[in-house]
């Protein structure tokens, strides 16, 4: 049974001009343990698809099964990491990480032990009593990852989690994520618009088209890890993907220009 099964999923959003088809007949089958990147320009529906899997927005048609069970709403079995971190600013780092465990009514001592373990795992132990506003973006995203890992969810959904970070922080968090992924064996569905990021991370890259959002190309990345962005195979793949994404980006820009001139 696939960890995530997406069958003929469509979704449209009403706008002032016309309904925008964000997703059209998406079919995807993701086996357990796979690291999948959804790649495409903004407006291609990749975040919409992720939100549908997370259970935040129901598709208009089609269905999504997670381990054989239809998705009806958000659930801690599909932990989500947001680009904006979404840490609760009124809670300390430790309280943020403990939140999901307290919701599950885990005994206090066990919560404490698990929080300590996670903070250690993400090298956050010394920041346990800090508030999010005191941390850098990279640190905040580490906390968000620890908060989601606390749930022990088999599936990790990540919505451009490193999009707002500088290049060096981004790379170190990518390494960290790959380490956690290989240690914990989770299924990861990762949205990004960075071609290099997708090649660096994924087992499989799903390139999406700009409106309507469909699967343009579904390809496996067989390069051995750790991957070297300077290697010829890496760059070969990067050229290939750049071509695909550029076509969609062109359509995106043409569409925007049209929208502005007809307003």
């Amino acid at each position: 049974m696939p960890a995530i099964l997406i069958e003929r999923v469509s979704k449209a959003f009403p706008t002032s001009r016309a309904a925008v088809t964000a997703l059209e007949n998406i079919d995807l089958e993701i086996p357990a343990g796979q690291f999948v990147c959804l790649l495409g320009p903004s407006g291609c529906g990749k975040s919409t698809l992720l939100n549908a899997v997370a259970g935040f927005a129901r598709p208009d048609a089609g269905r999504i099964l997670v381990n054989g069970v239809p998705v009806t709403g958000p659930s801690p079995e599909r932990g989500m990491v947001f680009q904006e971190y979404a840490l609760f600013p009124w809670m300390t780092v430790a309280q943020n990480v403990a939140f999901g465990l307290e919701v599950k009514r885990m005994p206090k001592a066990a919560v404490q032990a698990r929080v300590d373990e996670l903070l250690h795992m993400l090298k956050l132990s010394e920041f346990a009593e800090r508030y999010p506003k005191e941390l850098s973006g990279g640190m905040r995203q580490r906390v968000a990852i620890a908060r989601v890992l606390a749930l022990d969810s088999p599936i990790l959904l990540m919505d451009e989690p490193f999009g707002a970070l500088d290049a060096l922080t981004r790379r170190s968090l990518q390494d960290e994520l790959l380490r956690l992924w290989s240690e914990l064996g989770k299924t990861v569905l990762f949205v990004t618009h960075s071609i290099e990021e997708s090649i660096f991370l994924a087992d499989r890259i799903v390139v999406m088209t700009y409106r309507p959002g469909t699967v343009k190309r579904d390809l496996r990345v067989d390069l051995p890890r750790p991957r070297d962005p300077a290697a010829p195979e890496f760059n070969q793949l990067k050229r290939e993907l750049s071509e695909l994404v550029a076509q969609e980006q062109t359509r995106h820009e043409a569409d925007e220009r049209l929208a502005l001139t007809t307003d």
Binding site: G73, P74, S75, P76, M80, A86, L87, F99, V148
Partner: peptide, 16 residues
């Protein structure tokens, strides 16, 4: 809204 979505995702019910 992102705080509400994050909390739902972490398993919190309406009262929590």
């Amino acid at each position: 809204g992102i705080f509400l979505r994050a909390a739902q995702n972490l398993g919190a019910g309406r009262l929590t």
